[in-house]
């Protein structure tokens, strides 16, 4: 089975600062992947490059065999770590926006998720709390039927109640033939939903393994391994 996502030798430099250095990995279909690293380790940058928002300094990426570009935008659903809704919008406008532009948007699923997340369609987007905003961003991202979902810190800076809700939604609404890459530094909370994890340190993938393997072979939780690798 051909890889869903192929990342090959991707590097990114800002002036003298090397943010990503020769990142390579393959992701198969139907996988939930954790992209783990401390803050500033380049996780967001990597996701932005895959999503086509930032050009890589070197290397190439292909999704379903197609290089990053206009075509892959229809194959990828990206949720940034910062809200990207416009302040004039109400929740239903944000939904309508996605529905208008993305042919793969599932309106029914969106309404179901809004219900599940206890979001009111008529609320103004700018008055939503951080937790509610994350839920909205997640609803928008997961209501699209695509092959690859990229979620950047979906539970960062959010209260534990909202966290549970978000994790619940991710597991409940994800599609079996698609893959999700979730970046986070809150490993303990999230490790149970991952199939595989990749550790990104100083711009390099230093470890890429199946989660249950880590538990069985190394007898450790991913959180413990994370602390070892990142020396906290």
């Amino acid at each position: 089975m051909d890889a869903l996502l192929k990342v090959n030798g991707v590097s990114k430099k800002y002036g003298k600062k090397q943010v990503l250095d020769g990142v390579s990995f393959d992701i198969g279909p139907g996988r939930l992947i954790g992209l783990l690293g401390s803050n500033g380790s380049g996780k967001s940058t990597l996701m932005q490059i895959i999503a086509g928002l930032t050009p890589a300094s070197a290397g190439d990426i292909s999704v379903m065999g197609r290089p990053t570009g206009r075509e892959t935008k229809s194959l990828i659903s990206y949720m940034p770590d910062r809200p990207m809704t416009e302040s004039w919008m109400k929740v239903r406008d944000a939904i309508a926006f996605y529905n208008d532009f993305y042919a793969d948007f599932d309106m029914e699923k969106a309404r179901e998720m809004l219900d599940f997340m206890k979001l009111d369609e008529k609320s103004g987007v700018s008055i939503l709390s951080k937790g509610m905003n994350e839920r909205l961003q997640l609803t928008l991202a997961l209501s699209r039927n695509v092959s690859l979902y990229l979620l950047d810190e979906p539970i960062g800076g959010v209260d534990p109640v909202a966290r549970g809700k978000i994790l619940d939604a991710i597991v409940r609404f994800y599609r079996e033939d698609s893959s999700l890459i979730i970046s986070t530094h809150l490993v303990g909370d999230m490790e149970r939903i991952f199939d595989e994890v990749m550790f990104l340190r100083a711009g390099r993938i230093v470890h890429h393994e199946e989660v249950e393997n880590i538990r069985m072979k190394h007898g450790r939780s991913v959180d413990d391994m994370f602390k070892e690798v990142f020396g906290e």
Binding site: R31, Y174, R192, I193, D195, E212
Partner: peptide
Amino acid sequence: VRELAADLQINPNTIQR
């Protein structure tokens, strides 16, 4: 698989296994 995964908040593939 899906119900249990959602209930426990566990990766569905793990449940499958």
